[in-house]
Structure formats: C-alpha cells, structure tokens
Design a protein around this nucleic acid. Structure first.
Lengths: 214, 214
DNA sequence: GTCTATATGAAGATAGAC
DNA sequence: GTCTATCTTCATATAGAC
C-alpha cells in the first residue's frame, strides 16, 4: 500500500486544547444557559481563540452537544458500581436514595438537566440521548434491586421498572424541580434528608408484603 | 381639590393593543423560548409595532414577566373550584389526579414551566412568584383534603402538605419532566391513565389505616 | 398612542498570517 | 493548529412623524 495508510498517532496534538475549551464551555453553559453563553466568554475562560473553537466543534450547537454527552457520562460515573443487594429493604432504599440525591442535586447535574429542558425542543435527539444515558440507566439499576427483593418475597410490586421511577420521584422530584428553577430551601441538606425519610416511609408502606403499619 | 384628582376612565384606550401584544408574545415565547423569541416576531404576529411594545412593557424582560403572571392565573383557573371532599379516598385521589394532569400536561403549562426553569437563574423573583401562584396553591388544595380525611380517621398521614406534594409527584413527575424535555410516549393519554392508577395504588397503600393489601 | 425608519451594539462565524 | 483581526447579521432599543 503506497501512501494512504499512514498510521497517525496524532493524539495529544489538539486534545489538550480541546479539553480546555470543553471544560471552560461546560462551566459557561451551566452558569449562563445556552442563550446566555457566548463563544467569547468561552474563549476568554479557556484562554483560546474563537477560530480554534470553531475548528473543533463546528459552532455553538456542536459545542453544546459535546458538553452534554461528556457531562452525562461524568455525572453518572459518580453514581458508582452496583452494590450488593442486602435484605434490609428500607435501609437499602434510604442508602441508594442518599447517593441518588448527592448525584442529581449537585449544581452541575441540575444545570445540565436545566439545559436539556430549556433546549430540548431545539435539540430533541440530544434530549433522548441524555435520558438514555442518564436517568433511564439509574432507573434500571434500582429496578434490578427491586426484582431481587421481589423474588425473595420481601416486597410486593407489579412492575419494578415503574416502581423504581416512582421511588426516585418521591425522593427527588419536588426539590429537584425547585433547584432547576433556582429556588432552594435554606437548609438543603436537612430538606434532602427529610425528603428521603418520608419517601422511604410511604414507598415502603406501599410495597411491603405484610400489612402492619411501621 | 383643584385639578389633581381627575378620575380617568382610560380603560379601553390601549388595553386592546396591550392584549393583542401579550397574546402574541405568549405564543411566541412558549414556542421559541426566551432566547429564540424576538420582538420582531411578536410585532409581526400581533400586527403592531416595536415602539408600542416598548411603550407598554418596557422591553423584553418586562414582556416576559407580564406573560408569566398572566399565564399562571389563566392556567390555574382551569383547575377550578375546590369540590366537596367525599369519603371514597381512592376515587377522590384518582379524580383530582386526572384534573391535575389535564392542567399541568397541557402544552401551554409545560411550555410555561419550561420557560421558568430555563430563565429562572436570570429572573429568580419571577420563579418564586410562579411557584407561589401556581404549584404551591395546588399542593395546599390537596393538603386540605388530606387533612379532612385524616380527621375522619380514613387515612394516616403525618404531614398533609408533604403528602400532597408526594402524591402529585408520583402522578406527574416523570411524564412532566419528559414533556418538558420534549420527549413523550406515543400514547400519552394511556400513559397518563396508567401513571394515575399506579400512583393512587402506591400512595393509598402508604397512607391507609388498616394493613391488608388492596 | 401608534407607526416608520434608524441607530447601536453584540454575537456568531470566517479569512488569512504564523 | 492556533492565533489576530474582521465581516456580517440581526435583535434590542429609540427618535421623530402622524
């Protein structure tokens, strides 16, 4: 083969600048939103130039897509590895709820969700990707745990997938929506803990097999 | 009193143009979002002129605030009058959940919520107003019903206010978030009905006084 | 009060040097 | 590959006529 198959190892060439730009852009977009963010702000914070941004990402749209895809992975990785499903259901629920809230209430995660909602109409494919890579995987995680508990006869639930969504909604929906709107209670950590406790209580009463009140 | 207290009845003077502009602007903002909306688009759809828009609302910000305040009232009025609290709790819950979903899943309501979330950072006071006039009143409504049921010994619940939020989150959170992101299942009405049924089931098991499974 | 026409400025995008 | 400097577009906002 004459000259076509030149095996390039052009790795660290522009990768550094690309990362710098992407990190700066993520901060800017999360802080100002899509409309409020400008390429100039990104350039300034990254210490790069406009032309480089355009050569890497094509434009503001491409930059936005790159941000979402990279960030979902990073946030989800914080959710960690599937742990052992031990048999104290209420304790396990409270534990996974706590980790869930740490992840989804983090400013970055809230900002990303806000971006998806704000621009979902203009970028529907991106929103779908976000849900597939993010929330849906988390739901599936808990659904698996619920299935195991059901097989062991510890709980009574028709549809583990739906029940998982219900549980996370009980834990997070209200606080998460207020966070997205920029409205949060003063003692956030206390509010989160109470939300978890009450969610576990109602949910547990809803799925337990015997009937006596807690 | 000489000349100061001239009682003007300058009502229908500019009120017509104002309404025309506000209606057109609401459509444009809900359709394109704050960033995508332009005064030119509003002017075109309203058949008015830029200068008139500015004389009424001061600018894009003022127009946005006027839209939110007017729209929350209109949407909430659709929720209607507090009905009689009859004693079939599960039936009543399903009924109020159905009306709630009709209101909050309507395209206008979803669009308004999306606007609040997207621009909440830039307009925090507006977001607070929105919550006070909208969701918080709805929660209080159901909380009142729950209190009545509790007094009658029909349910067991510690904090009616929190329980109300929990119930509406169970019913709506997942579908509502997907709607805001522009992602909806094909059979929306079926999905809503199923969401209501499952929410009532879990919530009822969580608050009922006796312990036998349904 | 309402319009037409215009000023002003900002932000996305690119041409060309190094 | 990366920068500086520039172009172009377009949206906000206003001045002035009717």
């Amino acid at each position: 083969m004459p000259a076509t198959a030149t095996v390039r190892r052009t790795r660290p060439r522009g990768e550094i600048r690309r990362s710098q730009i992407l990190d700066a852009a993520t901060e800017i977009f999360l802080e100002y939103g899509y409309g409020g963010a400008t390429i100039d702000l990104v350039v300034e914070r990254a210490g790069a130039s406009k032309a480089t941004v355009y050569s890497f990402f094509g434009g503001k749209d491409g930059l936005f897509a790159a941000i979402v895809e990279e960030r979902v992975e990073r946030i989800l990785s914080a959710f960690g590895d599937p742990e052992v499903v031990h048999s104290d259901v209420r304790h396990a629920l409270a534990h996974i709820a706590g980790r869930f809230m740490e992840v989804v209430m983090a400013p970055d995660a809230v900002g990303l969700y806000r971006l998806i909602i704000a621009e979902g109409i203009r970028f529907p494919e991106l929103a779908r990707t976000f849900y597939r890579l993010g929330p849906d995987r988390t739901y599936a995680h808990l659904a698996g745990m619920l299935s195991v508990w059901r097989e062991r006869g510890l709980i009574r639930v028709d549809d583990p997938q739906r029940a998982a969504v219900q549980f996370f909604d009980l834990v997070s929906a209200d606080l998460h929506r207020r966070a997205m709107a920029g409205i949060l209670p003063k003692n956030l950590r206390t509010a989160i803990q109470r939300s978890i406790d009450h969610a576990v209580q109602v949910f547990w009463n809803g799925i337990r097999v015997d009937g006596r009140p807690a």
